[in-house]
Amino acid sequence: MKTNFFTSKKRKKIILYFFLTITMAFFLFPFYWIVMTSIQPKGQLYAPTPNFIPKNITIDNYINILGAGKVNIAIALKNSLIVALSVTVVCIVFGIFAAYAFARLKFKGSNILFFALIFAEMLPPVALLLPFYLIFKQFGLTNTLQGLVIMQTSWLLPIVTWILYSYFKTIPKDLEDSARIDGTSKVGALIRIIVPVSLPGLVSSGVICFVFSMGEFMGAMAIVNVTRFHTLPLALAQFVTKYSIEYGKITASAVLTIIFPVAFVLIFQRYIVKGLTAGAVKE
């Protein structure tokens, strides 16, 4: 009887669906809940019984936060997008260069330099922040978007190099060699052969950069302290700590904050899985 319970296919399916439902509910409910909160009028939020189904839908919260208010989300959104897109582009370009050098070229000290890069990635950011702040101050980079781009790029470049390195390693060398026989230069082969073939790897590391940059908080808080240069996480944190009563506006800002990362991740889901698992799975 007992073995029957576990081997019976139908029972197995039922158990599977039961746990799947619980799992998906746990991971998705918080999203549903902030969207629900953001489209309700203020008074309704503090009712004794929460609304689980939309009632009296309003977009006032969104209109409110995008206008000039105490916390200006429109500016933060613009800053975040500028920083995240710049970081992504710079990381990809420099990452291609470095990854190609490590994956394909023979040079003295390549092992040590590659290890140094991984080592840099593993350092705790909080250990770097204070000197960061003091140095950036000297160069006038505090309270600038350029400062944010430089800081985040330096944190992400090692990981991008690592992902692209693993990717380049999987490209058969013959592909490049045949082009080289036809007279293409090394740089030409990199641009015309390697880069197009590695598009999935580029997309995956690009999205990882973008997602990280859109969410980066501790470093940004250390070097930016004027509202004009706030990124979304800074604006949100200020919202939560200073005006914590306004949950309608807070959740509306949160929804705007996650829209871009979530959309990109869903669109490029397959690539990201490949990028994140680069090197983690033995082929």
Binding site: I34, G215, V265
Partner: peptide, 18 residues
């Protein structure tokens, strides 16, 4: 299932705080 991973920690914090 990947979406929470793409959610910035500040948003995670305020979601759960709420």
């Amino acid at each position: 299932i990947i979406i929470p991973w793409a959610t910035p920690f500040v948003v995670v914090g305020l979601m759960w705080k709420w």
